[in-house]
């Protein structure tokens, strides 16, 4: 590794390291930067939804308007995508959205730690969604839930093949669901870090990578919101499948 002995020493993955806040080894209960940034996520979400909307004014302030728009946005998404009877799961989906959104956005603060860039975190979220939606499908529909895999509109000879494909894609759901979020977050931050490393290496021409990082930052802001949206809307899609398994 010649580059490492030279001036260019970029370690794009170091920002994802889990570190204990007060030193020492990391066991399951140790407060780490994960704890810190998850706590900040809760604080930020509460700040918007409770402190921002504290006025409960008839004519909302800006923060209250933002909180109400978030509420309405997710509410309509649940209602439109997953159906009217999915509205009772609205608090769960809203919690999921707020967590992912604020974890993504807070991760964009320089020197911040992005909790959603870790497979462990997103996998737990995605598998929780997957398992609860599957359980819900069987509880609500019984064996009729298996009709999800039996595409009755296809020719009979094709159905077993399709059933196999559907089954595989069904079990691939939590994997793609989790890796999409973690991968998008990880990729953006790693690329930003690489570009930032170029800035220190290029000397006088540092402004070129700085401009690139600025543009990338805007893109990452978009990605952070879109990934939160996509994570939530896919949850709604899976929920719809559980509530209405017939194609």
């Amino acid at each position: 590794m010649a580059s490492e002995s030279g001036g260019l020493s970029i370690k794009p993955m170091d920002q994802f390291q889990v570190k204990a806040l007060f030193g020492g080894d990391i066991s399951w209960y140790t407060p780490t930067n994960v704890t810190l940034w998850m706590a900040l996520t809760v604080v930020a979400a509460s700040a918007l939804m409770i402190y921002g909307a504290r006025g409960r004014a008839l004519v909302p302030s800006r923060a209250q308007s933002a909180a109400e728009m978030t509420y309405g946005f997710i509410y309509n998404m649940v209602k439109d995508v997953a159906g009217h009877d999915a509205v009772r799961f609205f608090p769960h989906i809203f919690t999921l959205f707020m967590f992912v959104l604020f974890a993504n956005l807070l991760g964009l603060i320089p020197f911040a730690f992005t909790t959603t860039s870790h497979i462990a975190v997103t996998a737990v979220l995605a598998f929780t969604v997957f398992l609860s939606v599957t359980a819900l499908g069987f509880i609500l529909n019984g064996t009729k839930f298996l009709g999800l895999f039996w595409v009755s509109s296809a020719p009979l000879a094709l159905r077993p093949v399709l059933a196999l494909i559907e089954l595989i894609s069904y079990f691939a759901r939590p994997i793609s669901h989790s890796i999409r979020l973690a991968g998008a977050m990880m990729a953006g931050h790693a690329v930003a870090k690489v570009f930032a490393g170029f800035a220190s290496a290029l000397g006088a021409a540092f402004f070129v990578p700085v401009l690139a990082v600025t543009a990338l930052y805007a893109l990452e802001l978009l990605v952070a919101v879109i990934q939160a949206y996509v994570f939530t809307i896919l949850t709604c899609v899976y929920l719809r499948d559980a509530l209405h398994p017939s194609h």
Binding site: T30, V34, M38, A53, P91, T95, T115
Partner: peptide, 26 residues
Amino acid sequence: SNQIFWLVVTMVVLYYVMSRVALPRI
């Protein structure tokens, strides 16, 4: 294990804050 533990704690706290306080108010 550390991440998962804190994630579960966070999600439970956030869920209660959202579903008990924030959402009914809004």
